[in-house]
Simulated assay, not measured.
Amino acid sequence: MDKIAARITSDATPTAPALVLRPWQPADAPALVELGQDAALRRWTTMAVDDEAGAADWIRTQQRGREAGTRFAFAVLEPREQGAVERVVGHAVLNGLAPGASSAEVGYWTAARARGRGVAPRAVQALTAWAFATFADAGLTRLELLHQVDNTASCRVAEKCGYALSGILPASPPAYPHDGHVHVRTHGA
């Protein structure tokens, strides 16, 4: 596990600051509570955090997944101002890793203030590159990105990041009440 990064970076662009992806920390709980109030985030994700206790529990779940080597969740951060403290603008996760498995799932969400500014595609690109660089030797050759069929913004993010639409995943209520798109990216693509 020496190659498991504590930080992943996405370079700055002419119009956007650099992003840093790092594991969620207990100190992120207040930001997570604030982000968890976003109606759009609640609509498109299963992340439901209402208070600091719930945020702390959610963060502990992310940490347990990292320790088990099955889930690598990252807070997506950007600087508030030049050289100032970074703020949480999203979440990116590599999930479903298993020894010898050839595929895993990439997921993400962004704060309302970060939408439409290229945060999601840059975070997904950085996570994808890291996942293949870190786990290809262990057999990882395929990443999937799933979203509800009516989430056109996530469809655009997947396409920008080189994840081709490969099929429709039927709804499975109550956890997944709507059909989903399955986007796939293979190592080297």
Rank of each mutant, 00 (worst) to 15 (best):
R87C: 10
A136L: 15
V124N: 07
A136V: 10
A84S: 08
E86K: 06
T141V: 15
R122A: 07
A133C: 14
R122F: 12
R87L: 12
T141D: 15
R122H: 04
Y108W: 14
A133E: 15
A114I: 07
S103T: 01
T128H: 00
A112P: 00
A84K: 02
D137S: 15
T134V: 11
A138F: 15
A84N: 02
W130R: 00
N95I: 12
Y108L: 10
A84T: 00
L94W: 10
R142F: 10
L97Y: 07
F132Q: 08
A138W: 14
R117E: 13
V106T: 04
T128Y: 02
A120F: 11
L97K: 01
A136Q: 15
G107N: 04
T128S: 02
G100Y: 12
G116V: 12
G118A: 14
V93W: 04
D137P: 12
Q125K: 14
L97P: 00
L94A: 10
A133K: 11
E105Q: 10
A126Y: 06
A114Q: 05
R113N: 09
L94D: 09
L94H: 09
A123Q: 05
V85Q: 14
A133H: 14
E86P: 04
F135Q: 03
L140D: 08
E105Y: 13
Y108C: 11
L94N: 08
G100Q: 08
V106M: 13
T141S: 15
F135V: 05
H91E: 10
A133V: 09
A131R: 02
A136C: 12
V106A: 10
G83C: 09
G116D: 10
D137F: 15
G116R: 06
V119S: 02
A123V: 05
G116E: 11
A92P: 00
A131C: 08
A104E: 06
T128F: 04
Q125L: 15
E105W: 13
G116M: 12
R142Y: 06
A111Y: 02
V106F: 10
L127C: 01
G118F: 14
P99W: 08
P99M: 10
A133R: 14
A92F: 00
V88S: 00
A104I: 03
A133P: 09
V89T: 02
G96A: 05
F132T: 05
P99F: 12
H91P: 03
R87V: 11
L127V: 00
G107R: 02
A112K: 05
E81V: 09
P121A: 12
A112F: 07
Y108G: 07
E81S: 14
L94C: 11
T141F: 15
L143W: 02
R115I: 08
G118S: 13
V89A: 04
T134E: 13
S102T: 11
N95H: 14
A92K: 00
V106P: 03
A112S: 08
R87A: 11
Y108S: 09
S102W: 14
V119D: 01
E86N: 13
R142G: 03
